[in-house]
């Protein structure tokens, strides 16, 4: 026989034997895996941001398949993912409104005063431990970008020692809310555009001393909306995000310009 044919057959046989062996072994050693978990993992965005509270997309998928966990926990995925997951599991669920982060401080370098020269470690948590860094306001943004460093999508920009979230890039995972030592960052419904950009709870004169754009607790905004939408919490106006608030002109009432109308207005303007 021609050696070429002979050797082709030889290798072919070897391949067959190997294949058969693998087939046999995979049959006898088969591990049963839940196909829904795999399908669910594929349906999730796969960026492993951890915003759902699980260690990555696969862990969340497993929890959904086995523990009857809600389908709407994936923030980056939004409505599309919820629909896909509902189709796979046969459950019904409606998407939550997409949330984006907002930094509740507007005290940039020009607007907020500095109490001291801080020349330590350029990290918010570290600065907060040393007399609260250089800024006079003990509630305000330190501007060293600890939030920006944990953001998986680079949605936070530090400009003039103030963190600003770009809502179009934000996936609402909430990592920054945990990274901020001053708890300044809040997740809010995407459609909301009116925010009180201050969490200073001190009295008006004290706020005025440290910042030009702080909330001085004058109550003009809460009165303008009949205490709905914006409520007073001591000396601080707080937006109630569960109540609709559709009047951008309320921002003009604020004497210190602490209320801002931020982009992300698109849906609200259309409504």
């Amino acid at each position: 026989m021609d050696p070429v044919i002979q050797h082709t057959i030889l290798i072919g046989m070897a391949g067959l034997v190997c294949g058969a062996l693998l087939a046999l072994v995979s049959h006898y050693f088969a591990v049963h895996e839940d196909p829904t978990v795999e399908a669910l993992t594929a349906a999730l965005p796969g960026i492993n941001c951890g915003g759902c509270g699980y260690a990555g997309c696969a862990a969340y998928a497993k929890a959904v398949a086995t523990e009857n966990i809600g389908l709407d926990l994936c923030k980056p995925g939004g409505a599309e993912t919820v629909a896909k997951m509902a189709a796979i599991t046969g459950r019904t669920a409606s998407a939550r409104e997409r949330e984006v982060a907002v930094v509740l401080c507007n005290g940039s370098r020009e607007r907020a005063r500095q109490a001291a020269l801080y020349n330590g470690v350029a990290d918010c948590a570290a600065a907060d431990l040393v007399a609260g860094g250089g800024k006079s306001c003990r509630f305000g943004c330190l501007g060293f970008g600890s939030c920006a460093r944990v953001c998986p999508t680079g949605a936070i920009e530090i400009a003039d020692s103030l963190a600003v979230v770009h809502p179009e890039l934000c996936i609402g995972c909430g990592k920054c809310t945990g990274a901020c030592p001053r708890k300044l960052i809040k997740l809010v419904p995407e459609s909301r555009s009116i925010h009180v950009l201050c969490i200073n709870r001190d009295r008006g004169p004290d706020v005025k001393k440290v910042c030009d754009v702080g909330c001085i607790g004058c109550t003009l905004c809460s009165k303008a909306c009949n205490n709905e939408g914006i409520k007073m919490d001591g000396f601080l106006a707080v937006v109630d995000y569960t109540v609709p608030l559709n009047s951008p002109e309320i921002a003009t009432k604020c004497p210190t310009k602490a209320i801002a109308v931020r982009p992300g207005v698109k849906k609200e303007a259309a409504a």
């Binding site: 470690v121 948590a125 431990l129």
Partner: peptide, 13 residues
């Protein structure tokens, strides 16, 4: 190097 500040930050975290 601001070693003590690093330690404080590290301990806190």
């Amino acid at each position: 190097r601001p070693l003590v500040q690093h330690m404080r930050q590290g301990k806190q975290t």
